[in-house]
Amino acid sequence: MLFAPDTEEALDFVVALGNTTPGSSRSGEDELATIEQLAALLTRFTYSGRIDHDAAELDEVRETRALLRSIWGLDRDDAVEPVNRMLREARALPFLARHDGLDWHMHATPPDAPLAERIRAEMALAMTDVIRMNEMSRLRICEADNCDGLVLDLSRNGSKRFCTVRCGNRMNMIAFRERQAGT
């Protein structure tokens, strides 16, 4: 599956952000509970512009995380309304930008917009590509027991089932043990 680089980057960020929740994080804890944890997440992904590093921003990003998780894996037609709402609320005006060593890519909000608003607008832009390409099936929830991790399937055949190798290995081990018990 081939999306534009900025679309893939935005979707990768949503997976990382969404997988900080207790049901999907590696630790089983909320991995976006502190300003420091948000700062650490933002070091792995490039977000230029305003970053306040305060509790209000953390709360807004956590609310955005819940919103983006609610859209992930929706039916194509069901995703349109929340995506359009995010674009409207951000008063998105898409423009091309080049910065921080990145080639031309899309932004939809000014650099001084709040971080959570920029995250929502960039996700909405990415989702417009996914919707227009009819590829919502590439956005899934992990099939492992007791995991609700987000899965972005960019594989050629669209067969990725688990959010991490760890979940895949765990489910393979369970299946192996069930087969062994049956023989």
Rank of each mutant, 00 (worst) to 15 (best):
A4T: 06
T7I: 15
E8F: 04
E8A: 05
E8W: 08
L11D: 04
D12F: 08
F13E: 08
F13C: 15
V14C: 12
V15K: 11
A16L: 01
L17V: 14
N19D: 10
T21L: 15
P22T: 01
S27K: 02
S27Q: 11
G28R: 05
E29A: 10
D30V: 11
D30E: 14
E31M: 11
T34G: 14
I35K: 12
E36S: 07
E36N: 13
Q37P: 05
A40L: 08
A40M: 05
R44E: 06
Y47C: 14
Y47M: 14
R50H: 10
D52C: 14
D54I: 05
L58H: 06
L58I: 11
L58F: 06
V61D: 02
A66T: 04
A66M: 12
L68G: 01
L68W: 01
S70Q: 13
I71M: 13
W72R: 04
L74W: 02
D75A: 10
D78M: 13
A79R: 03
V80N: 02
N84T: 06
N84E: 13
R85C: 09
L87T: 08
L87Y: 02
R88H: 05
A90G: 05
A90M: 07
A90E: 00
A90N: 03
R91Y: 07
L93M: 10
L93D: 08
P94I: 12
P94N: 15
F95V: 09
A97V: 14
A97F: 03
A97W: 11
D100K: 09
H105A: 07
M106K: 10
A108V: 01
T109P: 00
T109S: 10
P110E: 04
A113W: 10
P114Y: 13
P114V: 05
A116P: 01
R118K: 11
R118V: 01
R120W: 00
R120I: 01
A121S: 07
E122R: 15
M123V: 11
L125I: 09
L125D: 04
A126C: 03
M127A: 02
T128Y: 02
V130P: 01
V130G: 02
M133R: 15
E135N: 07
E135G: 11
M136D: 00
M136G: 01
R140I: 02
R140C: 11
C142H: 07
C142A: 02
A144Y: 02
N146V: 03
D148C: 05
D148S: 13
V151D: 00
V151F: 00
S155C: 06
S155I: 04
G158F: 04
G158E: 02
R161D: 00
F162T: 04
R166Q: 06
R166F: 08
C167R: 03
C167G: 09
N169Q: 10
R170D: 03
M171H: 03
M171N: 08
M173T: 12
I174C: 00
R177N: 13
R179Q: 05
A181Q: 12
G182D: 15
G182P: 00
T183Q: 07
